[in-house]
Amino acid sequence: MSETPEKSAKASKSSQAAQPAATDKANSAAKPAKPAPKPKPEDKPFAAFINDDLLPALKQSLTERHQAPISLELVEGDRPVVGGNCWMVQGVLPSDRRFWLCFESDSITSGKTIALAETGSDPSLLESFLIDEKRINLALLQSRLLQRLNGQKWFGGN
């Protein structure tokens, strides 16, 4: 049995009509991919995070509290009070008040300690810093450091 020209035309029309519908379904199923989430500052390498994110944020916060740092830098050297090599955020504030935020290794999740020194004195006490926190991020490091400095009454009376 051979097809009549009418049946052949109907068959080709129905196959053409079916193709756009299939293409529409394929297009709607292939939605554009969501952009990758912006990486968190904490995911950067240690030195990049400290220099690019933490130090500028601290400088701004200290300046807002009328304690613009005279010096604020990341250094590797001898830990205050107890010695031993470590990474430190060293800060010198007006009136020669100094602080050292020490990291046991080049990771923001490593153990941290803090030492403080009033004008004309050397640090005499090394305190644990953020020991109970499971997730360390920029906001937490900044706020707790400022809280600790404020506890010394370095931002005025409490």
Score class of each variant (00 low, 15 high):
Pro45Thr: 08
Leu116Gly: 00
Asp52Ala: 07
Phe155Asn: 10
Ile70Asp: 14
Leu93His: 05
Leu93Ala: 06
Val75Trp: 01
Ala47Cys: 01
Ala36Cys: 04
Cys102Ile: 04
Pro37Arg: 11
Leu116Asn: 03
Glu104Gly: 06
Ser95Ile: 14
Met88Ile: 06
Leu145Met: 05
Gln16Leu: 11
Val82Gly: 05
Lys153Leu: 11
Pro35His: 08
Arg135Leu: 04
Ala22Ser: 08
Gly83Glu: 09
Gln142Glu: 14
Leu141Val: 03
Phe99Tyr: 07
Gly156Glu: 09
His66Arg: 15
Pro94Ala: 09
Ala17Lys: 15
Met88His: 00
Glu118Trp: 05
Lys34Ser: 15
Ala48Tyr: 08
Pro39Glu: 11
Gln152Phe: 04
Gln152Asn: 07
Pro80Gly: 13
Gly157Phe: 13
Leu146Asp: 02
Asp24Gln: 12
Ser128Pro: 05
Asn137Met: 01
Leu101Phe: 00
Asn137Cys: 03
Gln67Met: 13
Gly120Ile: 13
Ser124Ala: 13
Ala117Tyr: 09
Leu74Ala: 04
Asp96Cys: 10
Pro20Arg: 11
Asn150Thr: 02
Thr119Glu: 14
Lys44Val: 05
Ser143Gln: 14
Leu125Trp: 07
Asp53Thr: 07
Asp132Ser: 05
Leu54Ser: 04
Ala29Cys: 06
Arg98Pro: 05
Thr63His: 07
Ala36Gln: 15
Ser15Asp: 12
Ala68Trp: 00
Ser14Asn: 11
Pro39Met: 10
Phe129Thr: 09
Pro20Val: 03
Gly156Leu: 10
His66Tyr: 15
Val89His: 02
Ile50Asn: 00
Leu138Gln: 01
Gln147Gly: 06
Ser12Pro: 08
Lys59Tyr: 07
Glu133His: 00
Lys112Ile: 01
Ala17Asn: 11
Leu74Asp: 01
Ser71Trp: 10
Asn150Met: 02
Leu93Met: 08
Ile50Leu: 01
Cys102Leu: 04
Asp78Tyr: 01
Ala57Glu: 03
Gln142Pro: 00
Gln19Tyr: 15
Lys38Pro: 03
Gln142Lys: 15
Thr63Glu: 13
Ile108Gly: 02
Ala29Lys: 12
Pro80Ser: 11
Gln90His: 07
Asp53His: 09
Leu146Phe: 10
Thr63Phe: 08
Asp52His: 10
Ser12Arg: 15
Phe49Thr: 03
Gln152Val: 02
Thr109Asp: 06
Ala22Val: 06
Gly111Tyr: 06
His66Glu: 14
Gln147Met: 15
Ala30Val: 10
Lys112Leu: 02
Phe103Ala: 00
Leu93Tyr: 00
Val82His: 06
Phe49Pro: 00
Val75Gly: 01
Gly77Pro: 10
Ser28His: 12
Phe49Arg: 03
Pro35Arg: 03
Pro20His: 14
Leu55Cys: 02
Asn27Ala: 05
Gln60Phe: 15
Gln142Met: 02
Gln67Ile: 07
Val89Ser: 13
Leu62Cys: 05
Asp96Met: 12
Ser143Ala: 14
Glu42Trp: 01
Gly156Lys: 09
Ser124Met: 09
Ser28Thr: 13
Phe155Cys: 11
